[in-house]
């Protein structure tokens, strides 16, 4: 599987105008790659995740293409997307805690969903039980209502549901944010396990927790205000970041990579706030906060491959 996103632009339509939440995002995702997606709140991570599977009623595809295995993903055409959803591309939403119908038993809901997608529930029952066990849940959760489960349990149930049909691409949006440190680690580990067992091929793992993503991801992409700032292998991003924003982001971490700092590894400590995306500034969107900004930065820096597999969008790195 390869995912190729090219100059993707998706805006939110609001009464006050378009919110440029994704304003020309380009990246590739290789077969088997787990890509961590980081960036401050509001930079467009969830928007990117949703754009790969389903645009909600306020989102508008303005430009750019998505290709999955060289086939076009017709994101603007809701009906044409249906065959791809769940089978090829699947999602663990940011709101996984409330993603289950509160008035249906979990097992019944899964069966109804499967049948609606043309899968005989009986054919996947064994697999379902096996995967529940893999994430540390007993089959009896299928007989429960969502309110009977803890947040972490719901998170894992959603994880199993979303991957049940072995999608090529899984988008996991902040699946660990609401969990305690040890549960975070076990959820992250089972996600890697899912990839290793071939339940999913590639994954985009959205997170604020850089030290967690460093341990599990192959690559990390950093976004800033609807743009890609930098993408490279996880170790490159952590150890030799080139983009000033990434550098400050990483510099804000106390001790990257050590297990004890999982909580300390939140993104914080960069002075100033990201620009609003309703009328985004021209030029480099980071220039108001960038210590290295210079005259050229009033033009938008292109995303260039500065060394094999290492992309950055900054006039200083090019």
């Amino acid at each position: 599987m390869t995912l190729r996103v090219n100059d993707l632009k998706v805006y939110y339509q609001t009464l006050r105008g378009d919110v440029h939440a994704l304003d020309g995002v380009t990246f590739d995702l290789a077969d088997g790659e787990i890509m961590g997606l980081a960036g401050e709140s509001g930079c467009g991570k969830s928007t990117l995740g949703k754009s790969l599977i389903r645009l909600d009623s306020r989102m508008r595809h303005v430009g750019g293409t998505i290709e999955l295995d060289d086939k076009d993903v017709p994101i603007a055409d809701d009906d044409a997307m249906v065959p791809l959803r769940y089978n090829e591309i699947s999602l663990i939403p940011q709101y996984a805690m409330s993603a289950l119908n509160p008035t249906r038993k979990i097992g019944k809901m899964i069966n109804e969903l499967l049948r609606a997608r043309g899968v005989r529930p009986a054919d996947v029952t064994d697999e379902l039980h096996r995967r529940l066990e893999l994430v540390g849940l007993e089959p009896k959760v299928l007989n429960m209502f969502p309110i009977e489960l803890s947040g972490g349990m719901k998170q894992r149930v959603v994880m199993v549901i979303s991957t049940l049909l072995n999608p090529s691409l899984l988008i996991a949006d902040e699946v660990t944010s609401a969990l305690d440190v040890s549960t975070q680690r076990s959820v992250a580990e089972s996600m890697v396990e899912f990839r290793d067992r071939g339940y999913i091929k590639s994954m985009i793992f959205v997170t604020h927790d850089i030290s967690l993503v460093y341990q599990m991801a192959d690559t990390i992409m950093v976004m800033y205000a609807g743009h890609v700032a930098e993408k490279a292998s996880a170790s490159t991003i952590i150890n030799e970041p080139k983009h000033p924003y990434t550098q400050m982001l990483i510099g804000a971490l106390p001790e990257v990579g050590s297990t004890s700092t999982a909580q300390g590894g939140r993104l914080e400590g960069i002075p100033g706030t990201p620009p609003g995306l309703l009328n985004p500034p021209t030029g480099c969107r980071f220039k108001d906060r960038c210590p290295m900004a210079f005259s050229k930065c009033s033009e938008q820096p292109p995303l260039v491959e500065i060394e094999p597999g290492h992309w950055a969008a900054c006039w200083k790195t090019g």
């Binding site: 409330s98 969903l113 959603v158």
Partner: peptide, 13 residues
């Protein structure tokens, strides 16, 4: 609601 959005993302009719 979130559960409706989730089902839609998974292509439920």
């Amino acid at each position: 609601a979130d559960y409706s959005n989730y089902l839609q993302a998974l292509g439920a009719p």
